[in-house]
Design a protein around this nucleic acid. Structure first.
Lengths: 239, 239
DNA sequence: CGGAACATTGAGAGGGATCAATGGACGTGG
DNA sequence: CCACGTCCATTGATCCCTCTCAATGTTCCG
């Protein structure tokens, strides 16, 4: 191979403050480099893994945007999450050594492949990584619980407002605007995630536009009044 | 203290096939004994821990029945799970070193306290436990995703049917009947978990009774036609 | 026995689903 | 460059499932 080996390494990755190495010291990150040896490119619309695939690795999103979804035997499916840069995909596969959901790229994407046996070996070796892995899994559990809260006890407007706020917050942490975003998913995918039909998603967007809370042009969304969105999510702060 | 020290140990616990030690060999279980040193009794209606409490330990349910729930700022709450004998509570606390939900005993209960720093230390020491802890967390994530599917895309009857089937299945794994159960939670708690109002839960029970699928007498439920329940959850097997 | 907590059932209202039609954005190929 | 098809989004009209409000019944316990 004459292709100059681009060093695939956490230590020189500009995402290290968002990704697995977050909070590790430079010494520890160098050890991590042993773990992340390969990258994988995923085309828009194709799957990083699918239900039933043997589980071998966790994946860190390096670029692009993913959705994960589960499917009922009768074909309905539920988007369980959207993952952006620096987030970890694949934790669902650990229990049964097979993936329990599909992970699909919503735009051309690249992930760092982290073979799970190596993750385990390395986290036996040094405490910081061990703690880190545990926190990543725990964070996912807490996130899932807040989605359950959303699905179980919020109305359409509250769900969409919470969704938008969550998205901009995560994008902001990645250096993007606090008030503008481009949705990478369709209305139907948003609806699936939020437990509502795509028409309801669209109508709710239109409602927010009418109220002057946001501007929408297809996938582009501009938040004009963040406070209004927050009030929708939490109707009576202080009650 | 004159109270004879009852040995608190996984190695002589009759739940070891269901609980943390599941699948470990006797050698490894002896090591686990170092970890589980104390038990704690929780009265019906009181909390094992609450939102915001410092996180120190995971808990294995030894007897009794718990619910975990999260709360919105405006007071609505969502039951995120029901835990029975052998199941692990507290994983939500790992990320922020504070608990993110309340865990409340639905009947007088007893838990084994597993200080998390010791869990981490021991799982650095031996691989089987490490793998086990990872699987327990991953199982929780997969479970949460299936609850999201339930909340996001099922109707009331499907939700309740899925709930009943899940409960009896878990109870059966603990040696109880496949067709009879006593609910430990109120209609309101079931409703909160399933994202529906208590009246709807009650009505749906009545509907199942009318159809001859189950018998209900308050908290006591007898399943007369398991297949019918399964058909409700998966309306068109094969479509 | 009386009260509190929990459960059932009814009647009516409403939020979101469903069905359906239209319109815009984008990519491909002529 | 425009035509065309496809995918996606918007909007309207109607329906229905579940919520809400309300009354009654049951169980449990002091």
């Amino acid at each position: 191979m004459d292709i100059p080996a681009i060093k695939v390494a956490c230590s020189n990755c500009n995402l290290r403050e968002l990704c697995l190495p977050m909070g590790l010291n430079s010494d520890e990150i160098v050890k991590l480099d042993r773990l992340v040896s390969t990258r994988r490119r995923i085309k828009r619309g194709s799957a990083l893994f699918s239900v039933g695939d043997p589980f071998t690795s966790l994946y860190a999103v390096r670029s692009g945007f993913f959705k994960t979804c589960v499917t009922t035997p009768d074909g309905r499916d539920q988007v369980t999450g959207f993952q952006m840069t620096g987030e970890i995909i694949g934790l669902d596969g650990i229990v049964n050594e097979r993936h329990a959901c599909d992970a699909v790229a919503l735009e051309d994407a690249e992930v760092c492949v982290m073979p799970f046996d190596q993750v385990e070996a390395l986290s036996r070796e040094f405490t910081t990584l061990q703690s880190h892995v545990h926190k990543i899994m725990s964070r996912e559990i807490v996130r899932d619980h807040s989605v359950m809260l959303l699905l179980g006890s919020m109305r359409a407007e509250e769900r969409l407002a919470a969704f938008l706020l969550n998205l901009v917050q995560r994008l902001h942490a990645r250096g993007f605007s606090q008030s503008e975003l481009v949705l990478r998913m369709t209305r139907e995918e948003i609806g699936s995630y939020l437990g509502m039909k795509l028409e309801t998603v669209s109508r709710t967007f239109s409602k927010f536009v009418d109220e002057g809370t946001i501007e929408v042009k297809q996938r582009y969304v501009r938040i004009l009044d963040t406070e209004a969105l927050k009030r929708i999510v939490t109707p009576c702060e202080g009650d």
